[in-house]
């Protein structure tokens, strides 16, 4: 890593884990970035991407929400769901409260946090379907 350029990333995930490879690709990218010493300022889940936070009834090795939780715990990642996108998909209540559907490590936030993180980041990457 001598002389390597360390970057600060913001990651936006727009796809659910069930519809496309995008969320899993984002997960793999983040793991690789962290392993190479880069910083992940924010992982922001938007559009159908908020479904990544939903606890799976059939938790197994393909349960991406569990892997997100583990990655957040291990590296202190900030996993933020957009509250309005989560409301539209029934993941949080009309008041924006967690209804017990969210995996550990995810928190509810808003677009303001995404904008703020973008201003501090060197790169913003969007993973979409």
């Amino acid at each position: 890593m001598v002389g390597a350029l360390i970057m600060k990333f913001v990651i936006q995930i727009d796809a659910s884990p069930h519809e496309a490879q995008a969320a899993n690709t984002a997960y793999q990218f983040i793991k690789a970035a962290l392993a190479n010493g880069h910083h992940i300022l924010l992982v922001f889940f938007y559009y159908d991407g908020v479904c990544n936070a939903q606890v799976s009834s059939f938790a197994g090795k393909d349960d991406l929400s569990g892997r997100w939780s583990a990655l957040a715990r291990e590296h202190g990642l900030d996993l933020v769901l957009c509250v309005s996108a989560a409301q539209r998909r029934g993941l949080v209540s009309a008041e924006g409260k967690d209804q017990g559907l969210l995996a550990p490590g995810f928190r509810i936030g808003g677009l303001g946090q995404w904008v703020d993180a973008c201003l501090k980041a060197d790169r913003i990457l969007t993973f979409t379907s």
């Binding site: 957009c82 539209r88 303001g112 995404w114 904008v115």
Partner: peptide, 19 residues
Amino acid sequence: GDRTVELVDQLLAVAAFDH
């Protein structure tokens, strides 16, 4: 679906911060 509305929400969030 709601992607169009959500796109506009995101646009407005950026514009609201005067960028």
